[in-house]
Design a protein around this nucleic acid. Structure first.
Lengths: 336, 336
DNA sequence: GGTTCATCCGAGAGCGCTCCCGCGGTAAGA
DNA sequence: TCTTACCGCGGGAGCGCTCTCGGATGAACC
């Protein structure tokens, strides 16, 4: 019951379009791929046939010959826990997604939490499957970017690694953001500005601390791990050792939230007695009491830029490596 | 400089594996696809060759002939705003992802916010590209599931639609969860339990209100839209009209957070004077003051179940439609 | 008018895989 | 021992596309 002549069962193929337009396969292919080597007349013929038939190229067939899949991976090296706790990821995902859709590329999202998944991932990415990868939240000196680049899978990562690697890179101006926050506190007349830092083995942690030091030098500082508990503990320590504190710059909103709690418990009013500034401008910033003044990172822009760099790499018309640093901005709310 | 004999430049192909193992292409294919029609000896031979060569089947070539892409779409009909504000999505994404990875399927994430993207999406899904779609957060009576099913793209959706559609469906027991929350408040000795409902044109909104009524009948109720502001406004109204209130069940954590704020401003202590229970067990629940007692939805399970249903549909060994309702659970924190 | 050259087009080859047909070999039944 | 059946296997065909090459067509030149 097959009928491979005129209108076959499934979707129309290139060949059918060609037949209908009265041209050869090659011509249709050229039209579809926007080649200039087609006469206006033929182009019109083909275009009409395409429209009538509702032709859409078969991705698999194309991929088979071009060796391109037209899909790119967005890899998040994070536990599920953190992945959905941090609004950062959602926003990156979302912005990357919209750029990719516009470019008619597929976004394949991969979350690699367990070490075993991590391993599987490497195999997955280095084989066929995707044309390139966007790497989010790489930990420490993960060798993955190196491996991928070696095997010919272009990568772009978010955030600066401890050691420079082969990936292109998009980062936010953490240092500048911290500087802006602390400067603002100073301008508000705060005299004793403390900081709760992030982990000092992570690039953003270091950069934000540096920004703080740029402004006030050796002020009261306590280390946290970006998490809320650590923020509370750091705040307690600061209060005990520097009771004269009238402002705190925390390197994450979570830590700022923890600090807020401790401050309230200690009977200090925010912002009257102690001003608090966070970092990330995350959802929690809007839901603490008072709402948190926080440093905003242009996450959407970061996503877009990552895609742009990756595509440039893919098209090969850009130098191999590139680095973009995007500006941060202080968002004022009630806490400072 | 081509060398198509022994070891070609790129990755090994089926043919090369076959040559190395000294068998035919068919046999290798059978081994790779786990057919039973292979002698142990041949299987071993092939397996060894695969291991030595590091062979991985070419997805595109396979897709071309099988008409299967081995990738499924996860579609979120939500503005970017809400997508990253609601932890719900992150968790679903994450759980779906892990199941899919285990099954060696690609997850293609699509976020359709703008109406124009919405339209594009329809074309995308109905063409080739994916074997099936998981639909999240469909609005109103979106005809998409119908369209997709008609065009042969199996779908599974999260949450009950206003009108029953052709998709299989996974939902949380919203009504039961609400019932549990309100029952708990009663057991704690609360006498005047109010509710802040979600929008009454959305299934979860309705179901949660029904659960409330199941326990206390016609209690003080004010409508919100799941958002924080609406929760605050509703709380103000309730306080004004039912000052004797000693407990509030809010149909979302956001609304509960808004209520909390109003309550504090009104000088009511939580939970001493007024107990508050939220719904969703979202991150904010852990960061309000006091932390929010809230109804937990088994989001991870929902994701897993959605995938399971979709795959069953794909394999065709399950009746066309199916509906799964998963239990909810009350998580006790400080607010009630 | 004949030659040359650029331009446009048709169609063969082949990407790597699965499907399926049919063959040889072995085991079971007559 | 011969037939029948079945199992395991090899390899041809073909999925829908792009690439490439050589042929046809027409314009431009001598």
């Amino acid at each position: 019951m097959r009928d491979n002549s005129n209108r076959s069962a499934g979707r129309p193929t290139l060949e059918e379009v060609a037949a209908r337009a009265g041209v050869g396969r090659g011509t249709v292919s050229r039209v579809v791929n926007g080649s200039a080597q087609v006469s206006p007349k033929a182009r019109k013929l083909v275009q009409d046939a395409i429209d009538e038939l509702g032709y859409v190229p078969n991705r698999a067939a194309r991929a088979l010959v071009t060796q391109r899949t037209d899909s790119i991976a967005l890899v998040v090296f994070e536990s599920g826990e953190r992945f959905f706790a941090e609004p950062f990821f959602g926003r990156i995902v979302q912005s990357v997604s919209s750029v990719l859709v516009a470019r008619n590329l597929q976004m394949v999202l991969m979350i690699a939490q367990a070490p075993e998944e991590r391993r599987q991932l490497e195999g997955y990415l280095t084989r066929q499957h995707v044309d390139g990868a966007l790497l989010l939240s790489l930990h420490g000196d993960d060798p993955l970017p190196m491996i991928l680049e070696e095997r010919g899978v272009p990568t772009v990562r978010a955030g600066r690694p401890a050691h420079p690697g082969p990936s292109s890179l998009v980062d936010a101006d953490n240092r500048g953001g911290a500087r802006a926050a602390v400067t603002y506190l100073q301008e508000q007349g705060r005299r004793c500005i403390a900081t709760i830092t992030g982990p000092m083995d992570m690039a953003p942690g270091i950069a934000r601390y540096q920004g703080y030091r740029d402004v006030v030098g050796d002020g009261p500082a306590a280390a946290g791990d970006f998490g809320e508990i650590s923020g509370a503990m750091a705040m307690e320590w600061l209060l005990a050792n520097y009771p004269q504190i009238d402002a705190v710059f925390a390197a994450s909103d979570m830590m700022a939230a923890g600090a807020l709690r401790v401050l309230r418990r200690a009977g200090r009013r925010v912002p009257e007695d102690v001003a608090v500034v966070g970092f990330d401008d995350s959802v929690i910033a809007r839901h603490t009491d008072p709402p948190l003044t926080s440093v905003y990172q242009p996450i959407e822009q970061m996503g877009q830029e990552m895609v742009r760099l990756l595509l440039a790499k893919l098209d090969g018309d850009e130098p191999v490596e590139h680095e973009t640093v995007l500006p941060t901005r202080l968002i004022l709310r009630g806490s400072a």
